[in-house]
Design a protein around this nucleic acid. Structure first.
Lengths: 186, 186
DNA sequence: CCGCTCATGTAACTGGTTACATGATTTA
DNA sequence: TAAATCATGTAACCAGTTACATGAGCGG
């Protein structure tokens, strides 16, 4: 009878949101979406998703019903009224202030310490990062196109958000590169 | 004699980097920097920083020496040669591919599910977020100024990276808002 | 001398991670 | 029929979190 935690973890919220968005679906389907997401935030491992689903069900935020697709049996998950309330509350307003904060960025953190490397390695770092991010921008653009075709302005906005974020990182890198090239030996 | 983990956690790397960058300093000083960082990535709690420092020292990546500032005693931490090697390796190149991935963004995730809210709440969400991010942009700009005065192009680039990222989020939000206002009832 | 900051920790918990495990069904 | 995918889990581990705890030195 441990006092149930009042707030959901970020992953729990996303799982709940996906169950809402994808209509009744299996935990496996949710897991696949998290796994295939372009964001590297979560692994989408079974060890994360299934326990999260179990916790949501334990709180009555989702319900599961046996179903069969053809010969195959599975649990169809659906969000409950309480689940919708909790999800709305997670969204806000008022929006959780941690959602406004500067989000974590492993690339930006590395830039902070780049001075440790010899100059040629610094430039290699920057060029490698630019190439990689440009490549991932291709995927992101495809994702934006796909989602905007599907219609939802919100899913599209999320994808465009990733695109803007990637461009911002490119800008940061190219700015730094030109500054470094501006004063080749200092 | 547990086999030591080969790689450092992101926090361990940052702590090591800060000990490198801030010259010999106390764990407390490192902790303050992490705490006061504009990024919300880590709490900078004692329960995170001190164990991380202990792990780094246990691996020989840093050394500690008793010092006294006035009457006050403390441990001055300094990075070792091995520590510099490990830090260089963490930086790359080759850069850890997870550093290229789309970084986590709790705001972007919420946008994905914003359709759940009634339209007026959607707009309140967006406006609230825009206001908050504009406010935080003031702080970020001040940070950019302060760091660029101090000289290091890398610390400055990091701060400018945060600025670009925030602007990207603003762009995402204003785009979404104007799209929603474009078709008021659909 | 009182309160703030410096300074360093520990303890309980939690929610992720990787890796392992199983079995049914579908597809090539 | 073999391999891939669907589907659901568990176990060990780990690095964070919050909260608690202590004590010294410094400034008013």
């Amino acid at each position: 009878m441990a006092a149930p935690k009042r707030t959901l973890s970020e992953l729990e919220s996303v799982v709940l949101g996906l169950i809402w968005a994808e209509g009744p679906c299996t935990a496996y389907a949710v897991r696949r979406i998290v796994q295939e997401s372009l964001s590297t935030q979560w692994s989408g491992s079974a060890g994360a998703v299934y326990p999260a689903v179990a916790r949501l069900e334990g709180r009555g935020l989702i319900s599961s019903r046996e179903q069969s697709t053809g010969q195959r049996k599975s649990q169809a998950l659906a969000i409950s009224a309480a689940g919708k309330r909790v999800l709305s509350c997670w969204l806000g307003p008022p929006v959780d202030p941690t959602a406004f904060g500067i989000p974590a960025d492993p690339l930006r953190i590395r830039i902070r310490f780049l001075e440790l490397l010899p100059v040629d390695a610094q430039l290699r770092f920057i060029n490698e990062a630019i190439t990689a991010i440009e490549a991932s921008l291709q995927q992101i653009r495809a994702d934006v196109r796909a989602r905007s075709k599907q219609g939802s302005p919100f899913a599209t906005a999320m994808a465009r958000g990733a695109m803007h974020a990637s461009r911002a990182r490119l800008r940061t890198l190219t700015e730094l590169r030109s500054e470094l090239e501006g004063q080749p030996s200092k």
